[in-house]
Nucleic acid binder design. Structure first.
Lengths: 268, 268
DNA sequence: GAGTGGTCTAGACCACTGT
DNA sequence: CAGTGGTCTAGACCACTCC
């Protein structure tokens, strides 16, 4: 009939349609591969290809020894960066009690302070050419590189993967900032920088996307081959210097970034 | 040795490493599938799986009857929306000559006015529940739905896929706006709206990402399975109404969105 | 027509999960 | 242990491109 679209695609589309129309509900088990083979839908490899496609499309989850089930879609996490960044900055000027119990992660998830685990690894590295251009410094200048990821205590699923960079000599003005054991720091980066006399004036966000690597997919708990959003966040101080740069990897299927762009009025 | 990672993954990673390190340059042909089979790297299906993976990862292009070659990476198109939207708005107040020869597509690509083809399809549709919520109108209200895509004359590759919505009764105040033959409209949407007395005050962008559907991949000229950026753009008039909503699909691998978020100063 | 990648089959073995 | 999905092979045929 239609030798144009391969058989595995037709099988996958067929199942995808049943999921979209609600015949298969989230959590429902799908027919086993060998069942469809027995029913004459194709060979095992063909059905397997169809199921693999559905998995990389994020529609189903498979597990060896168990079966294939319709995926429960995680809720969208909306990040309004206009408000978010201003809230973060304001927090740094709050009393210590408020700073300790609130963080941007808690704000995102609605979780309590003690329900969030913070993992931090600090390194000191010479600046690459790319990093040197970003900060307007010389190649080889020592940088403090901080890698973070957050999770709820039970699970090992990260909400986002963050790599943050600061010029080492700047951070070293307050030696406490070099100690990864002090994370999570009450009041966040804005408060950290305020201890060495730096105020952030504005933040530049650059947003891109690509498919997740196998390692990222595992850490973020998403199927391999699904999309991630890449956020390059550059913080610029009131004196015009680039003082911090973060590279953030976000699972695209549960993330939405929002920005408001005000426009200049026309002359009347 | 390492039965953990499948053989096809190892083959794919091996080739990916050679591409990354420059052993294989963009445009270079890769070893033929049957060659690798003959050299004992695995069966045809296994090598094929590896090559398919590399294709959905955007590293190579394959064509039947021809072969597999290392993909030439298209240049990144950086969209600074802060400037871009203000430039677009300002253009609407320019003299007709300037409006005709400039458009946001020409600005993006650096191409001349006559090197860009604009395809537009207009429809009138009742508002869905989602659209009604967006515009704050009743479900079923007639909407003008405009689908656009732009390309260079020779190729059939779209730069982006745009679906724009306006309340039909609003657009109908200037009947010329209902005529798809008048696209591209000199001066863009801002000028169109200005002819019916509407000025845009601000634009809300919501950014998401996912893997491209087969249809989108074909239109945008990207390998199926690679990522697309989804931009939901809401234009709000000076009187506070939502007057236009666009859904834009962008090829992630050649797009970067930039935003600047100004922060309120701390009290001294 | 020769050579390419794409699909499909049948059968085998492996890794993992339940009971 | 039986049953699941994941991988791999060998061989076949198809669709396409180039000469």
């Amino acid at each position: 009939m239609s030798p144009k679209t391969p058989k595995w695609r037709e099988i996958a589309d067929n199942i995808a349609a049943k999921i979209a129309s609600g015949v298969y509900q989230p959590g429902d088990p799908l027919p086993h591969i060998r069942t469809l083979v027995a029913e004459g839908y194709g060979s095992k490899a063909t059905i397997n290809t169809a199921y693999s496609a559905l998995e990389t499309e994020g529609l189903v989850t498979t597990s060896r020894g168990h079966g294939t089930t319709v995926r429960r879609r995680p809720p969208q996490n909306i990040r309004r960066h206009q408000e978010r960044y201003n809230w973060e900055k304001k927090l740094a000027r709050s009393p210590i009690g408020e700073r300790s119990n609130n963080g941007v992660v808690e704000r995102d998830t609605g979780l309590d302070h003690d329900q969030v685990e913070c993992h931090a690894v600090f390194n000191t590295e010479p600046a690459t050419a790319e990093m040197a251009t970003r900060f307007g410094i010389e190649v080889g200048t020592l940088m403090l590189h901080r890698s973070y990821w957050h999770s709820t205590p039970g699970e090992s699923v990260a909400l986002s993967l963050i790599d943050s960079y600061v010029v080492h000599a700047v951070a070293a003005q307050n030696p406490e900032l070099l100690d990864s054991a002090r994370e999570p720091w009450p009041g966040g980066t804005h408060h950290q920088l305020s201890t060495i006399g730096i105020e952030i004036d504005r933040i530049n966000d650059a947003v891109r996307a690509r498919t997740a690597s196998a390692a990222e997919a595992k850490k973020l708990g998403i199927p391999p081959g699904t999309a991630v959003l890449l956020l390059d966040k550059t913080s610029i101080s009131t004196s015009g210097d680039v003082v911090e740069y973060s590279h953030v990897v976000l699972p695209a299927e549960r993330t939405e970034l929002q920005y408001t762009v005000p426009l200049e009025r026309w002359a009347t």
